[in-house]
Write a protein that binds this DNA or RNA. Structure first.
Lengths: 188, 188
DNA sequence: CTCATTTTAATACCTAGTCCTAAATGCTAG
DNA sequence: CTAGCATTTAGGACTAGGTATTAAAATGAG
């Protein structure tokens, strides 16, 4: 005999979990049963059809993209004087930390400082060239990081920006960024 | 008159970007045109049908969840020899770039290198201390970044890691990371 | 008014299903 | 061996959300 119903259904659940993109037809071939059997199995196991499975995945992803929006700027720029100084605020939330120890990953602090440094430049296309940074002490979940940026040197196509990030007056991160202009566009 | 074809198509692209779950029927009602018109528009604009759009989103999510998990590590670590060397791969996708110019934001490259450097350390809690980095040339949407990390110095609670990121043999990013161990846990 | 563009309509077909009924197997107990 | 049950398979009707094609109607510009 092939497999019992129970055995098949158990493998079935696994299969769909592992690869949600399987059609009933593909699974039917895999298990050498008819497509109807697979459909009865899905019914009993409460596994929705291919299209529904895919849709749910897409919906979840959509939520993420919208809410987390890891896009233009990391941190809220609350003060900005172009080519002079700026301040950015970032509260460390769950998606910023290592799960194991609730410590913010380095590139989050870097991203806040880097975004701020670039925002300081009044150029259409500004990019980071060199940077030298120091993670002074670990930052934990829930802490509010305030990044202070100051322009140390300003040339017409290069900016030297120093950034200090503090949690309650305590320095947690320090960085020097060299931001440069691309192209000859001026103004925003 | 309603809208010209061009106007409608422009709004259409936006609409689908904003809400990829729209059916042609819904859109047709929104714009007060027939369903066929919408389909012609999609054809001309190269916008795939609802199911394909959803499927692509789900596929992306599936890739991400499996490998990137958008949290722990940025980039796919494809080779890793603890306390020695490692290689990580990252294809620059839309969420990594500035919309204006399709150039990858600095902290994405930093994140890839930083994640890799930390992955090299066989410690329960490893954090970045200092880092000195250089963005050699801008990286654009779609380019595949391969980060090569090598341990330059290894102490019992500190690691010096050099990272070079290349796009097709061309160096785009260079960084030196000092990773340190927290606590007295050894092994993983 | 005429011609080209644009829009709408109609039809056949597709996938990956659902839902329902019915028939064919398989297995077990009497 | 056979009645009775679970299990499996088959078939038909219908669905959403399309594609692809052909053709007719509406509209706008010269």
């Amino acid at each position: 005999m092939r497999l019992t119903k129970k055995e098949r259904q158990s493998y079935l659940s696994q299969a769909f979990e592992q690869d949600p993109f399987l059609t009933d037809e593909e699974v039917a071939k895999k298990f050498h049963v008819s497509i109807q059997t697979i459909r009865l199995d899905r019914l009993e196991l409460g596994i929705p059809e291919l299209r529904e499975r895919i849709k749910h995945m897409a919906e979840k992803k959509f939520d993420h993209v919208q809410s987390l929006s890891p896009n233009e700027v990391i941190g809220d720029v609350i003060d900005l004087q172009l080519h002079k100084s700026g301040i950015s605020l970032l509260e460390i939330s769950a998606e910023h930390v290592f799960k194991r120890n609730q410590i913010a990953r380095g590139h989050i602090l870097f991203a806040q400082a880097n975004s701020l440094a670039i925002a300081l430049a009044d150029w259409k296309v500004a990019l980071t060239g060199n940077a030298s940074i120091r993670f002074v002490r670990p930052v934990r979940l829930g802490e509010k990081c305030i990044a202070f940026a100051n322009v140390a040197e300003a040339h017409d196509s290069r900016l030297h920006v120093g950034v200090q990030t503090k949690v309650q007056e305590e320095i947690v991160f320090q960085g020097d960024f060299e931001v440069y202009r691309v192209g000859d566009d001026r103004g925003n």
